[in-house]
């Protein structure tokens, strides 16, 4: 019996380590405080891999690119593979460059892009989330923390079910963003090779 119990716990150990649990109020407070250090971040440069998971296909659709953020209002989101596509959020406008063809982004894209770009900027700078717009919960796990945002407004609920921002335990920077849709399908953005406070060339935010 004891052997079975040991075997059971050994099997469950990886899952227990990965399990997310709600932070206590004291832990939330400490976590928020640790994010305050991020206010010193003026720029972020990172590679990203985007995985689109859909219930009816086995492997996710994958694309890669570069993300640049410059405080307070500049963000460049460009795909490099399998296609070249650049979106820039600058001075309240969203512009796209599709292999040389420049245009304003369409409504269906811009809603989510605007939402995510604002969230990324906020997350990077450790800013508070709008609790009128989202129900915010704080979770902890081995190796990091997660902020879960559940939309409160009917309009946002129609296309986003939940947003998860995963922070790495070592530097408290966002390492992953998961956007879950009402259908249960989701998009996962994994940020890699993050560099902070490097000088970003103006051309990054141009076409």
């Amino acid at each position: 019996m004891i052997r079975k119990l040991i075997y059971f716990f050994c099997c469950m150990l990886p899952y227990l380590a990965l399990a997310q649990v709600q932070m206590s109020p004291a832990e939330v407070s400490a976590f928020k405080k640790s994010l305050q250090k991020a206010k010193e971040i003026k720029t972020l440069e990172t590679d990203f891999v985007q995985y689109k998971h859909m219930s009816f296909i086995k492997k996710p659709v994958e694309s890669t690119g570069k993300l640049y953020v410059q405080h307070p209002d500049r963000l460049s989101w460009s795909y490099t593979s399998p296609f070249a596509y650049k979106m820039v959020f600058k001075a309240g406008k969203v512009l796209i460059n599709d292999q040389g063809k420049r245009q304003s982004i369409d409504v269906s894209n811009s809603k989510q892009f605007e939402k995510i770009s604002h969230l990324v900027s906020s997350a990077i700078r450790g800013e508070e989330y709008n609790e009128k717009e989202f129900a915010v919960s704080y979770l902890k796990e081995a190796g990091g923390s997660t902020i879960k945002l559940v939309p409160k407004t009917t309009d946002t609920k129609r296309y986003i079910k939940e947003i998860s921002l995963l922070f790495s335990g070592s530097d408290n920077l966002v390492r992953e963003i998961i956007l879950r849709e009402p259908s249960g399908d989701y998009t996962r953005f994994v940020l890699k090779n993050r560099k902070i406070n490097t000088k970003l060339h103006d051309s990054v935010f141009n076409f």
């Binding site: 795909y79 979106m87 894209n109």
Partner: peptide, 26 residues
Amino acid sequence: DVNGTLLVKALAADEHRIALVSDFGQ
């Protein structure tokens, strides 16, 4: 203009699941 990814999967010979996903994953 809408760019993205079109996914086509046959669930049966005469039944298909078709999804269009924007570049941003929506």
